[in-house]
Each structure stands twice: as structure tokens, then as C-alpha cells.
């Protein structure tokens, strides 16, 4: 079948070089993956095209790239699935990472993030012989994160990293989860506290779901982050605006049946956190001018008793 690729090229090694797009049109096998097509370009058309690839079986994690604006493992993406009628495929390097050349990005950022979460088992004591005793369920559970092949697709499309390079990032946080949930690890509370307190930690995720969407191995990093938030709160970490935000949301809906947005903003910042409240003031003022200011006295839902009942039911189940 016919395939049309539009590939972003850039060689910073050349003085004055600027990124540009190059188009390739080629005939590929009907079962071809996008990687097969790119290899065909490299072997038959243009030997200067730089990309990483190795296993061709979605286990080595080398070939993350953006296809039509979305990060994918190209060895696992068949041409026919995304361009059944020969539609043009736009291939670009992954985002949020420095381009080394063409489709190759630097992995330094990615692995610096990984290193931030102490990515190795820290047991209290190690058995001298034999293995740690642990249930099969607890080990199988960890597979969710162990399936991560560190391809970087989640980091590429993370909307927080786009604006805040200090965020630990979805891959590293999924890696952290693998240790907080490992019954053999002895530092669960310390890890959770650090991830909770740290600038760029678990509360900086905005729950945009991009990492869940693009992960080729179903690691669902955002779900792992949310589980760590729950775990951190349960472990007594209630000092973050993230926690106050959650708590305010919860109480407001329980009380009024609706969200009290004004209170939410102040609760999240903290009533005594003057600098943060001053930060909010201009936003409030702008909102006021545009007629978007939420009412000071919150609206209440008409049938808020139903919502209270729901709360009681769920809270009862949790007990």
C-alpha cells in the first residue's frame, strides 16, 4: 500500500540549521508498522534520517515519536490503523525533550526525573538466604508499573511538563509507585512524604489524562499518581494545597450539593497563607471585571439531600 510520510528533520550539529519537514512517499507491505516504513526510508531512500529503534516488538522502548501530534511507539503502530487510505502521516520527535537530531531526543531529562524518586528497593532488612515472602497478588499488582519500558511517550505529551520542567513527571512517578506499593520496601511512608512535600511532586499533576492516553504499555501513570495521593493522605500528609483543595471540594459538595468555587480557591491556598492569597487577588479582580466571579454565597443544589445520601452511602461502604 501507498504511504506518505512527512518527517520533521533537524540537525543542530550543522551551523545555522533550522527544523524543516521532508516528505517521503513509498510503497509498504499492508501489515507494515510506521517503524517498518521509516526503516524502509532509511534503508532505501535516505540514509541520513536519524531515529532510534531496536526490538521491533514494543519491549525496548526506543522508538517513541509523535505521529500526527500524539506520542506513540511506532513499532506498535500499524500504518493501516492510522492512515488506511494513504493519508499523510506527520512524524515528529517526542515533546518536552531536547532534540538531538531528527527524531532522536535527549534522554537526559527523562532519566534525571527517574533518579529523583530513589528508583531502587530499600528494604528494612534483607533475608540472608532465600527470598522475601510476599503474596502473588501483591507482586502481580506491581506488574502494572513494571510493564513500563521507559519509552518517554508520557513525558512527551505531559501538559504539566510543558509549562513546568520541575515536575517529576508521569514515568518517574509511576516508577515511584512501584516502590510505594512493594511490600518488600521499608521506606513507604518516607517515600510518600517526600513525593507529597516535594516541589514538582504528586500534587502537581493536573489530571489531564494525556499520559494514560499515550502510554503504549497501559501503565496509566496518572492513575498511579492518584493512588499515591490517596496513600499519602492516608499516611497523614495533609499539609499541601492539593490536599486542602480535595478536602474543600469534598466538603463543599457534601454541604451544598454544589461546588463553592470562591471557598475552594481560598481553602486550597490556606486561610493564613497571605502571600498566596495576594496572588489570587488579581485573578479574582479580573474575573469580577469579566463577570465571571463566582458568588460569595454559594448556590445550593435543590435536592442536596440526595447528594448527602450518596455521600453517606459511599462513606458507609468505605467503613
Amino acid at each position: 500500500m501507498q504511504t506518505n510520510l512527512k518527517v520533521k528533520r533537524f540537525n543542530p550539529g550543522e551551523p545555522g540549521a533550522q527544523p524543516y519537514f521532508q516528505e517521503y512517499s513509498l510503497d509498504v507491505h499492508p501489515d507494515s508498522t510506521i517503524l517498518d516504513a521509516l526503516i524502509q526510508v532509511r534503508e532505501e531512500v535516505d540514509g541520513t534520517l536519524a531515529m532510534r529503534c531496536s526490538c521491533r516488538a514494543s519491549i525496548c522502548g526506543s522508538c517513541g515519536m509523535r505521529v500526527n501530534g500524539r506520542a506513540r511507539l511506532v513499532c506498535k503502530t500499524r500504518v493501516e490503523a492510522v492512515a488506511p487510505n494513504g493519508e499523510q502521516l506527520v512524524i515528529e520527535p517526542m515533546g518536552n525533550q531536547r532534540v538531538v537530531k531528527d527524531l532522536v531526543v535527549s534522554l537526559d531529562t527523562f532519566f534525571d526525573q527517574i533518579k529523583r524518586v530513589d528508583p531502587f528497593l530499600k528494604p528494612d532488612s534483607v533475608p540472608e538466604q532465600g527470598e522475601f515472602i510476599a503474596s502473588n497478588e501483591s507482586m502481580t499488582n506491581l506488574l502494572i508499573s513494571m510493564n513500563c519500558i521507559m519509552c518517554g511517550c508520557c513525558v512527551s505529551d505531559c501538559t504539566v511538563l510543558e509549562v513546568d520542567s520541575n515536575f517529576i513527571g508521569p514515568a518517574a512517578l509511576a516508577k515511584a509507585w512501584r516502590f510505594t506499593e512493594d511490600p518488600r520496601d521499608g521506606q513507604r511512608d518516607e517515600r510518600l512524604k517526600k513525593l507529597n512535600d516535594e516541589d514538582g511532586g504528586i500534587w502537581d499533576c493536573t489530571r489531564c489524562m494525556q499520559c494514560v492516553e499515550v502510554c503504549p504499555k497501559d501503565v496509566a501513570p496518572m492513575d498511579r499518581i492518584m493512588e499515591m495521593r490517596d496513600a499519602a493522605i492516608k499516611a497523614g500528609n495533609r499539609n499541601t494545597s492539593g490536599y486542602h483543595h480535595t478536602e474543600s471540594f469534598y466538603n463543599s459538595v457534601k454541604k451544598n450539593g454544589r461546588l463553592d468555587e470562591t471557598r475552594l480557591a481560598i481553602d486550597s491556598a490556606g486561610w493564613t497563607n497571605i502571600p498566596r492569597l495576594l496572588d489570587l487577588a488579581p485573578i479574582g479582580f479580573k474575573a469580577l471585571l469579566k463577570g465571571k466571579m463566582p458568588p460569595v454565597m454559594p448556590h445550593k443544589a435543590e435536592d442536596k439531600q440526595k447528594i448527602k445520601d450518596l455521600y453517606e452511602k459511599v462513606e458507609g461502604e468505605q467503613k
Binding site: 527470598e131 515472602i133 507482586m139 506488574l143
Partner: peptide, 20 residues
Amino acid sequence: VLELERMGVIFSRGEDGRLG
């Protein structure tokens, strides 16, 4: 193999919690 387990490899287990 047991040393790898102690390093952190998440080997599958049997009913008794030892390696399967």
C-alpha cells in the same frame, strides 16, 4: 536467582508467598 529477587525483581509467587 534469589539474589535478584532480593534486589527487587518481582518474581511470580506460589500460594506460600515463595517463588512460583
